Computed example of a mutant assay.
Amino acid sequence: MLGFQDPVADAISLLRPRTVIGPSLKAAGKWALNFDPFLHVRIGGLVRGTCWLIVEGQEPVRLHEGDTFMLGNPPPYVLASTLDASPRPAAPVLAGAEDGYVRIGPESEENLYLCVGHITFDDRNAALLTDLLPPLVIVRLDDAHGGRLAQLIDLLASEVGVTAAGGPLVQNHLAQILLVHMLRAHAAQTDRPTGWLGALNEDGIGAALRAVHADVAHSWSLKELAEISNMSRSAFAHAFKRHVGVPPLEYLIQWRMSLARDALARDTQSLSELARATGYMSESAFSTAFRRVVGSSPAQFRNHVKKPAHSGAQET
């Protein structure tokens, strides 16, 4: 059976996150670093001090101790002590990291400690999240979710440079917990459609999303989902599209195809098994739906994702 019971856990599982923590930044004096665009999400927080975050195309943001930020597929951006500091490329500076830290200025005068993590996802399903995120999300310490996020940043920072057994595992789990809490904060802040992030809010729409994810093979009707949400069909359909961004049954199809892409990439089921697992009575019906959403047949998609494995390239 594909899918579980929680849309957030399901989606993050499909994203197959890979986490790189740091290097963290400790700085003193006047400085500025220019970062190139990157994929997919970077999360950071100020353990100590203040600095400016300047994302291309947006107003500069002053970050204070305890504030947390998330960058989603961002354009170039700058971190700086002051707005008039001349930025230098970040990459060579980061390459000089030691024990998980980059230091700028005299160690005895350090007044800034910034902890960051970079989370990348499986490219086949990365859009599940990146399409829902703005380039920048800021959560202030005094926001509803701010205190919890600041605690997580402190915990993550305490693991940087630690050589104790299990350190990378702890860092990876903390970063993913931080991601979930950051997504909750974003879902609470925004008035734009949030896709499966809508399930982070305990409401009728969330109940319908959880039901779909718990049994993706079920032949769901608008009437059934509306009843689960304790709404009329018209009210449910309107609310679902407003919160999630697509009609309920279109969301169901898109989620089924996300699961199908992942299963085809891992080549764990035959097409007939996959059709049944995603709620289709026949392989033909499944193939038609897959082609409409993905743009190729299931067989073509599976053959395409297999090609790198036979190219002779070595994994690192």
Rank of each mutant, 00 (worst) to 15 (best):
S270V: 06
L112S: 07
L264N: 07
P87F: 04
R184V: 02
N172G: 03
N73V: 08
G44E: 12
S81K: 01
A175W: 01
T278K: 05
E109W: 04
Y113E: 15
T278M: 06
P106Q: 11
V61D: 05
R276W: 03
H238T: 12
W196T: 05
P135N: 09
S284D: 04
R16P: 02
A239E: 10
V305K: 04
E65H: 03
E109A: 14
T316C: 10
E283L: 11
S297I: 03
M1W: 03
M182K: 01
R62I: 08
A239R: 12
F4S: 12
R48N: 13
D99N: 13
L183H: 02
A187C: 10
A126L: 14
R266P: 00
R16K: 13
A299T: 14
F240R: 05
G206N: 10
A188R: 09
G29P: 03
A309D: 04
G295L: 06
G167R: 05
S232W: 04
A309R: 11
M1V: 04
A275Y: 09
L128C: 14
D10A: 14
S158W: 01
L149F: 00
L15G: 07
V8P: 04
Q176G: 00
H243Y: 06
Q5N: 10
H243F: 07
F301H: 09
I54Y: 03
V20H: 15
G72I: 00
T163R: 10
I54T: 13
A313D: 06
T278E: 04
A127R: 15
G49P: 08
S229I: 07
E98M: 05
L46H: 08
P106E: 14
D154L: 09
Y101F: 10
I119K: 13
L178E: 00
L149A: 01
P248C: 03
L83H: 01
